[in-house]
Write a protein that binds this DNA or RNA. Structure first.
Lengths: 188, 188
DNA sequence: TGTACATCAGTGAACGCGCGTTCACTGATGTAC
DNA sequence: TGTACATCAGTGAACGCGCGTTCACTGATGTAC
């Protein structure tokens, strides 16, 4: 056929996509350039257009890609918490120092929520799909349908903890949020 | 003294600051340029440096300025809700269609939370001060100290509602969040 | 087996553009005399 | 009251830079014969 096999093309495509998914969570949609993504993959900017039609195309795909591990984690956490009959396990993992310090590998909602509303429709659609899946997954351990309140509180709290420059204030936020989540897990 | 009175200089300074406070909430920190702020005030970009040392200086001041009405609103809402003995008034106003549709005049936390962590120290310090004041104010109607959980849930929910492109999903989020907030307002 | 050719992922120079910042300037006004 | 001067907020051309995108190209490999 040609120089490269089909798998090689797909692998590069996937690597670009994953790098973009990590970088948007770390630096925001406006903080990543086509060049910086390609550099992260070890290529130069010109080759980008063999894989995506333009930057908007990449951002929409990266939004979807960033939400996959987000939802998977909620799935694992809620499964474990339900088995242990201890809902607070989820919040303890979600609000951990590690998650606060590593947005690039963390929840896409906490990293990007307030920016998504300013993005194009494809990005917003991708976000809505992932967020709904996350809220549904959390409903396993928080009574009722799609647990939007819990999802909003946890992602909002993580964003606040990252925004605040003071370790003591971060701990204060975490303590109070976990207390409130305990109250929401109680009863019918 | 000179052509302009001291008041004139201060008025222009205040107008630039207010325009920046509105524009960062509407378009994000990376979505505003020195030129766009000056244009909003009816001036040209060159005059900017008679009022601020650089863009970072403006952003830090604008962060503070954007949080002033945010905290004032929480103050008014919680006072009214306490007087009416109806905590849900706050969430009803905060999660209103009007607030969803007008981030430029709305809560600075919902509009910017996930971006603040990537900003310089002065912006983050300003944010922390305002967020703490908001959480303290909300504690009037939600039992306990600084109501970080309620603040995180409300600001997180508003960000989610703005991110999502579907009216039905927005309503679903609002309904569930208000239900959860009712539960948090109950009891000791 | 050996040679000529076709393929195509990736390269890097080039483009037009908007950005933050600088700077020589303008021109309306207050002050000095 | 009238004239010369000083002040300084605001103007707009210019700068260097990074961006998204285009495009002629390279060069390693598969295929044809």
């Amino acid at each position: 056929m040609a120089r490269y096999t089909a798998e090689h093309h797909e692998q590069t495509h996937a690597a670009i996509l994953q790098a973009a998914a990590d970088l948007i969570r770390e630096h925001g949609f406006d903080g990543v350039s086509v060049g910086s993504v390609m550099k992260a993959v070890g290529l130069t900017h010109g080759g980008f257009y063999a894989h995506f039609t333009d930057k908007a195309d990449l951002l929409a795909a990266a939004m979807t890609q960033a939400l996959i591990p987000t939802v998977e984690r909620f799935d694992r956490w809620t499964t474990a918490a339900a088995a242990a009959d201890d809902p607070s396990q989820v919040a303890r993992a979600y609000l951990s120092d590690h998650h606060v310090a590593h947005p690039g590998q963390g929840c896409a909602a906490a990293a990007l929520a307030s920016e998504v509303g300013r993005q194009d429709a494809p990005v917003r659609d991708a976000f809505a799909t992932g967020a709904e899946a996350a809220a549904n997954t959390l409903a396993r351990i928080y009574p009722g349908e799609a647990a939007w309140g819990v999802f909003a509180m946890m992602s909002g709290a993580l964003a606040l903890m990252r925004a605040v420059p003071d370790e003591a204030m971060r701990n204060q936020i975490r303590t109070r949020v976990m207390q409130d989540l305990r109250k929401l897990a109680e009863g019918e």
